[in-house]
Design a binder for these strands. Structure first.
Lengths: 271, 271
DNA sequence: AACCGATTATAACATGCGTTAAATCCGTAT
DNA sequence: ATACGGATTTAACGCATGTTATAATCGGTT
């Protein structure tokens, strides 16, 4: 299960490299607001040593109580909930650059779990460091607020997906969303992006049985819309898939390129 | 459609009454944290004159750009999204005391609409007033942050509902959630609460056709679990309904009664 | 190279829910 | 009262998706 864990006992991943785009958190926040050199430098400094986790490892339960945030550096994780009978529903994907806010755990018992789907590298960000960062770097504070708004919008979009789209439409929508999100952190290559999930994982995401996930996938392949080999997803006809899933990336990114202005007026205290 | 709008052209609803529990926002925030007299007084002062809206009236589009928040004083509203073919998916309910954060509209085009389902009374809260309130009253700031966390948790719970529960389970869960939320603002009477929705509205909420909503409702009635007459819902066997829907109110409220302590450590700047 | 468990793929069958349609009920206005 | 339109109810039928089962394939390990 976590076979890969032993391969890399504590290999430190270089975080504070001079080249500007390695850190996925930096890349993500840069897709939301304009960051200056000081902002970027500060972001690269806050991370504690990275830790490698195998697939299917819970990463919230363990941090619970520390109050620190967790950032996904590499890999693929999710928020999920397990029903009594065993069914799992995935409620959100965490991609590299995504922060897992631990605020929720203060509301008493955490209402859901967070775990890896593929083997992943995570870093803890001490709560105090994050608070300092936010108070000294308004751009970063702004970007984090926006990231949160987009995350909320994404969850709402998943409600729509589950509530009133067919299997094919759901899957097309999900794939479009994934490609866009990977593009935002510079991890897409053309129309391809990583997809280190099993069909069962997709089923738990889309509210479908794994058999039907397979059927739907076959149909998408047959129509020449997607290619899914190994752990890589390729969207052969992006436009067509966007039509099928009624995908509009506006809920993931600022419109056009007006990053700087877009969110000046956010009610900072309320957010 | 909006026939009732004309009935009450501009009837002002009394907001700042001396009796402590009239304002649903106060009641709601009090269910989250302990508020002192100054906090309550401040909350009662911020509202602009209330406006009456008929059912099925959008209330975001009109406020767009003003940046002010909107609070529902009476009635029933929702966040929703309309698909091209016409299907509507409701993503959240707004009950009395709920604030509709307008932050999202700053991310460019609003990604969803907010509208009334029943005729409602709303008040605008100027952005500046809200910012002042939050900076001068830490308890209120705390409560608003918690309210937001609970709102996020609620959306996640809806994802679970749509993703992996049957029609009966979904409806049982929704009804339990509604009762609890109305209890939090003091609008439930025993095991009864308002439900001014049509079966079509319920269908757009639960991802079911209106025919199947009806079937499911009949079955719940036949089993003596609920009573739904006029615009009032009554849960005859709350415990049983909670079992069916696997409902656990922990995602709506602080656990037990530890309101004051629960959230002291929230990363204020991040939230 | 050969093995193993996990994943993917297919088939056959079952069913929960959607669709269409028509009847009844109910609140509101005439 | 009466009439009207929207909401609820019920029935008949179809389909998308679930379920169960089994085979084929793949990726990683020895």
């Amino acid at each position: 299960m976590n076979a890969r864990l032993s391969l890399v006992p504590a290999t430190p991943v270089r975080t504070a490299e001079p080249d500007p785009g390695r850190n996925p958190l930096v890349r993500k926040l840069r897709s939301l607001v304009n960051l200056n050199a000081a902002d970027v430098a500060a972001l690269e400094e806050i991370s504690l040593p990275p830790r490698l986790l195998g697939p299917r490892v819970d990463l919230i339960r363990s941090e619970e109580g520390s109050g620190d945030a967790v950032m996904l550096l590499e890999g693929f994780a999710c928020r999920y909930k397990q029903r009594q009978a065993g069914q799992r529903q995935i409620m959100a994907y965490l991609l590299p650059g995504d922060l897992c806010d631990v605020d929720a755990s203060y509301l008493g018992r955490m209402d859901h779990a967070v775990g890896t789907l593929a083997s992943s590298v995570v870093v803890r960000i001490p709560r105090q460091a994050l608070a300092d960062l936010v108070s000294r770097h308004p751009n970063i504070a702004q970007a984090l607020r926006m990231a949160r708004l987009f995350e909320e919008a994404t969850t709402r979009e998943w409600v729509v997906n589950l509530g009133c789209r067919s299997a094919m439409e759901r899957m097309a929508h999900l794939f479009c969303e994934l490609l866009t999100r990977f593009q935002m952190v510079g991890m897409a290559e053309g129309d391809s992006c990583p997809l280190p999930l099993t069909q069962a994982d997709l089923g738990d995401t889309l509210g479908l049985s794994n058999v039907h996930v397979n059927r739907t996938l076959q149909e998408l392949r047959r129509q020449g819309l997607v290619e899914l080999r190994g752990k890589s997803l390729r969207l052969l006809k992006v436009r067509r898939l966007q039509e099928i899933g009624e995908f509009n990336p506006a809920y993931l990114q600022p419109v056009d390129g007006a990053k700087g202005h877009a969110a000046v007026g956010l009610v900072s205290g309320l957010a």
